[in-house]
Amino acid sequence: MSPGFLRLGAALLASLSLIAPAAAQSDAFPNRPVTLVVPFPPGGSMDALARITATRLAETWGKPVLVDNRAGAGGLIGAQRVKAAPADGYTLLVTNSALVQGAVSSLATAPPYDPINDFTAVMQMTLAPVVYVINPRLPARTVQEYVALVKREPRKHSFGSGGSNQTLHLFGAVFNDAAGLDMAHVPFKGDAAIVNDIVAGHISGGFVTIA
């Protein structure tokens, strides 16, 4: 089907109190391994971005840069890992808008962190295209054909996302509502798992980022 491109940004963040300690030891930084925490499973676009970044940083710094996947709870687990780490610049978070959405989600009745005051943005890393993909065995090759198919078969189809109340879930919910569809939402821990289940036919489609 013809892709409608949206863009989802990724950022590198650290604990808010990172700046002062890092400045004090700037001549020696880094003098040991640095960890990039990814709040999603291996195999997705955010994981790929972190691993490419880690390789280049390791070449530049001459020190190991590790990627630590801490998936779950729509990004909350990874963010908590970085918040709890010493504010010395050696533990960084590679994330997207899940940082904010996870904290204000209805599932997070007592948010474990403040996305504005507990972290500081180091840099914007990328803008990734977002597309809606479907199982290739479905008899639809355009958005119009897909919408017609789902309407003919109410409550049979579902869409996946990287977690409840996250960006791609919201995209799917808006699509569902705007097109007058009745697709069930199936949350996953990341893009890779969504694609696997779409190809296997367990779900009909879903919004994913292009790595």
Rank of each mutant, 00 (worst) to 15 (best):
Ser97Met: 10
Ala11Cys: 10
Pro33Tyr: 04
Ser17Ala: 12
Lys189Phe: 07
Pro139Ile: 01
Asp114Gln: 04
Asn196Val: 10
Ile134Ala: 00
Pro42Cys: 14
Leu49Tyr: 05
Ala23Cys: 15
Pro136Ile: 04
Ala200Cys: 13
Val82Gly: 01
Ile77Thr: 04
Leu12Asp: 10
Gly201Lys: 11
Asp68Leu: 13
Gly190Cys: 08
Leu149Tyr: 07
Pro30Cys: 02
Ala50Ile: 09
Leu36Ala: 14
Ile134Cys: 00
Val133Thr: 13
Pro112Asn: 12
Ala23Leu: 15
Met1Thr: 15
Ala211Ser: 13
Ala87Pro: 12
Ala193Arg: 13
Leu76Ala: 02
Asp191Tyr: 08
Val130His: 05
Ala140Cys: 08
Asp182Glu: 05
Pro3Val: 04
Asn117Tyr: 10
Ser2Lys: 05
Leu99Ser: 02
Ile52Ala: 06
Val143Arg: 03
Ala184Phe: 09
Lys63Asn: 08
Arg51Leu: 15
Leu92Glu: 08
Phe119Cys: 01
Gln144Met: 05
Lys151Glu: 13
Thr109Ser: 06
Ala54Gln: 03
Val174Asn: 05
Ala184Ser: 05
Arg81Ala: 02
Arg32Cys: 09
Leu6Ile: 05
Asn117Thr: 12
Leu127Thr: 06
Thr53Leu: 09
Pro112Ala: 07
Ile77Tyr: 03
Tyr132Lys: 06
Thr142Lys: 05
Pro129Glu: 01
Gly190Asp: 07
Asn176Phe: 07
Gly162Arg: 14
Pro154Thr: 11
Leu93Asp: 04
Phe159Pro: 00
Ala200Trp: 14
Gln124Cys: 03
Pro129Gly: 00
Ala103Glu: 02
Thr55Ala: 12
Ala193Lys: 11
Thr142Val: 07
Ser15Gly: 08
Gly4Ala: 11
Gly75Ala: 09
Val174Trp: 15
Val130Cys: 01
Leu168Tyr: 13
Pro154Ile: 13
Ala73Met: 08
Thr142Gly: 04
Tyr90Phe: 14
His169Tyr: 07
Val65Phe: 02
Pro112Gly: 06
Arg7Asp: 06
Asn135Leu: 06
Gly72Asp: 01
Gly180His: 09
Gly102Phe: 05
Gly205Cys: 04
Arg155Gly: 01
Val150Arg: 05
Pro64Tyr: 13
Ser2His: 02
Phe5Gln: 07
Tyr90Gln: 11
Ala50Trp: 08
Phe29Asn: 00
Ala108Tyr: 01
Glu153Cys: 02
Met183Tyr: 08
